[in-house]
Amino acid sequence: MYTEIKYLYLKQHSVTTGLTDAQLLEMANLVKVKNVKKGESVYMEDGFDSRIYLLSKGRVKISEVDDRGDELIKEVLTATEIFGDVSLDGSVSDDEFAEALTENTVICSFKSSEFKQLMQTNVVLAMNFIQHVSGKFRKLESRHANLVFKDAKSRLISFFRDWARREGSREGDTIRLNNYLTHSDIAGIISTSRQSVTTLLNELKEGGVIYYNRKHIEFNENCFVN
């Protein structure tokens, strides 16, 4: 792929905010760019090299499978988030996998060792990276608190509230979301069963709180958004 195209993808990502053209071109010479179709694996197949991934376009699901074969969804990411070896020490679980949830998903990736070297000589890049990692910790803390203090219905409502803040579009008082998640996906995110999610969604739909189909989810902003 041409260096100019790699440069443009990198420039659009928030982890490179404030970098000079020369710094972006240096990164473009090291980055790999991958276009991924919906349902395909995101991770690069280049041996045992640990990598840091920048999501430039689309949405990605990060999951693990437990001993019983059940999927645990760790994160659902949107552009422009980061994932992979965020500790930069090669400690990514062998059981973790990343799957594109949308068509034409675009991923930029670096070898962890090379990305670490870039940060050692680029304070702005290092600070941007730290902000992204801090955001991941805040999301993890919030999810843990929800598991401890909220029941499944409250966790579902919290999930919709957060989803609406990140991706919702307004039409008057109505929040509209593009629905790219299955009931199983939502169940994995809020740590309950698929059957419970289906029951709760039907309950909210019958109560007039929410409308949903395979493509869209709609609800009044006063229901979920504080």
Rank of each mutant, 00 (worst) to 15 (best):
G58R: 01
S56N: 15
N104M: 09
G58F: 00
L88M: 15
G47F: 07
G84F: 02
I73T: 15
T105C: 14
V92N: 02
N35T: 11
Q23P: 01
D46H: 03
E99R: 10
S56Y: 00
V36R: 03
E26M: 11
E81G: 06
Y43P: 00
N122L: 10
Q23D: 13
L54M: 15
K57V: 11
V33M: 04
V123Y: 14
C108A: 15
I62C: 11
K61S: 12
K37C: 10
L54W: 08
A100R: 08
S109M: 02
L30A: 12
N29K: 13
G39D: 13
D95I: 11
F129N: 03
T102F: 04
K116C: 02
E114F: 00
K32V: 07
D70L: 10
G58H: 01
K34Y: 02
V133G: 07
V124A: 12
Q120R: 13
V133Q: 08
E64N: 11
I107Q: 02
F110P: 02
K111D: 09
T105K: 08
A22C: 02
N29A: 12
M119H: 12
K111F: 07
F83H: 04
D85W: 02
R68L: 13
Q131S: 14
Q120I: 07
G84I: 02
G39C: 09
S63D: 10
V42W: 03
V123G: 00
C108G: 08
R51F: 05
D95K: 15
F110K: 04
Y53H: 10
A126S: 15
V106C: 04
K57F: 05
V124R: 13
T80P: 15
V133H: 07
A126R: 05
K37P: 05
S50R: 03
A98S: 14
H132A: 13
V106W: 03
S93A: 11
G135D: 06
D70R: 10
N35E: 13
V42M: 05
A126V: 02
F129M: 07
C108T: 09
F110I: 12
L77C: 08
V76W: 05
D67A: 13
L88W: 07
R59P: 00
L88K: 06
G47Q: 09
D85V: 00
E45G: 03
L25N: 12
Q23R: 08
A100I: 03
L72G: 00
D67S: 14
F83L: 11
L77E: 10
F110M: 06
K61N: 08
Y53S: 06
S134Y: 09
A28D: 01
N29P: 00
A79T: 10
D49V: 14
I52K: 01
I82L: 14
E75L: 09
K74D: 06
S134L: 10
I52H: 05
D95E: 13
V133R: 06
K136Q: 13
K116F: 12
S41L: 13
S87K: 14
I73H: 01
D46K: 09
K37T: 12
T102M: 14
I82Q: 01
F83Q: 04
V65G: 01
M119Y: 09
G135H: 06
L55N: 05
A22H: 10
Q117H: 06
K116H: 08
T78N: 06
E45M: 04
E81Q: 14
M27S: 05
A126H: 02
R68M: 09
M44Y: 08
E45H: 06
E64L: 13
